[in-house]
Nucleic acid binder design. Sequence first.
RNA 1: GGUUCUGUGGCCGAGUGGCUAGGCAGAGCUCUGCAAAAGCUCCUACACCGGUUCGAAUCCGGUCGGAACCUCCA
Length: 500
Amino acid sequence: MSELKVYNSLSRQKEVFTSLTPGHVGMYVCGPTVSGESHLGHARPYITFDVIFRYLQYLGYKVRYVRNITDAGHFEEEGREAVDKIATKAVLEKLEPMELVQKYTNLFHWAMAQFNTLPPSIEPTATGHIVEQIEMIKKILEAGYAYESNGSVYFDVKKYAAGHDYGKLSGRVIEDLLETTRELEGQQEKRDTADFALWKNAAPEHIMRWQSPWGVGYPGWHIECSAMATKYLGAQFDIHGGGMDLLFPHHESEIAQSTICNHSAPVRYWIHNNMITINGRKMGKSYNNVIKLTELFSGDHPILEKAYHPMTVRFFILQTHYRSTLDFSNEALQASEKGLRRLWDAYENLQKLSREGAPEAGDAELDKKINDLLDEFSTFMNDDFSTAKVLANMFEMVPVINSMKDKLIPVTALSAASIEKLKAGFHTWLEDIFGLRSVSEADNSKLQGVMQLLVDIRKEAKSRKDFVTSDKIRNQLALLGITLKDEKGGEMSWSLAGGE
RNA sequence: GGUUCUGUGGCCGAGUGGCUAGGCAGAGCUCUGCAAAAGCUCCUACACCGGUUCGAAUCCGGUCGGAACCUCCA
């Protein structure tokens, strides 16, 4: 089998993946800020890294997957107002800060469950690691790479850049950063505009506040990830993931902080997913084009023509490479919806196939083709997680599977071993690695029983050529959103339309 | 303005220099009481202009679009 190669943002090329500790992988992914509801944009990184998490486990690694919850507020705009986002919102909604944070954390977990993402191994909160953050800031101060100013602590970027490559990850040029002349209030606390806050003093009205050696305040934007990653994954770990928009300054700053604190670069492989765009524009609060996940699932948004099932969204995301932008549109989502249904129907048909008789393949050519397509799954996935290509291969096998089901091709065309491999391959990749599951909610046993009864009555009616009755059953069910289909050989199948 | 990336058929999207990705939509046929599904077939594109090469969507240069980051951000 080929080796796993991942695109490392740090080197801007694909590298063979090896873990620091054989058999183990440490992976940190920047989690959500729970000051508001998650939107469609959030779906991408968590689904992307869920698949990476699942795939690494499939490869046999024991993975510690750490994804934080940012529940301590960050600046609306650094230095300008020094108002904590969560604190502001809390006043507006008349909620306790922790109440607000809990509400959106719960909602986030709910949405992630809808997407069938596995929970991370550790989900640390920023508020739960104030002590670790303060300790880290102390170390950086002791090392001489930070300075205190008016109750705040800033990282000295210029000093760091003198001996380290600040900008390596994001391709930023330090001289340019230092020359920025942007006028920002509160900037006078900093020695250089490029410096970033490790600790901010809190104004009296600021609700989220903690005691520190520098006075009452709250942690800066970047320090939480460094502190928590160090605590749970060590000074050096394998993978750090997140959206491309976090490359600078967030991840660049993380590298600087951790390097000073731990005397080594923290991360071996930086993996960044690209953005979801809507009408060609990034989705974000500042663009006013946000579709919240609850709206996406309910269809309750002006942009949406209908509700979209979480699995449709998951499939939509997997149909493109994670480093490409993905443009959202109703047309594209509906194409994915139909594609997923077709693929899933074939998958279910496949699992029902039984093969008897001599184990050899009746059609050696077809047998080889299927085996080749299956073998390519790993090849594609090892090539920087090309989920789109794996899915394309699956679609190529769909006509073969459906033809075997309809007996247009005998099941014995493939060897017994190949059929088993096919079944196992689809199951493993579709469910275990890609994390897809049926969009049908038809697993209610009472509904199953009722439907079986209707199917039996319709079969009887049809056998009497009583098409009035048989059509009535099918048409009435259709009005209820249940599709009844006649199959070859007199069998019938049914499904709940849309999967909503 | 700086940095990085990008421009593929009606739409979405893979693409390692030569051999049809795939999905959706559309057309025809087969199957079928009808329908739906399914199967088969068709629809062959790479922003523009140069260059390298026997050969380029793929490499290089330029032009023109678009995006992300440079400020909270998945």
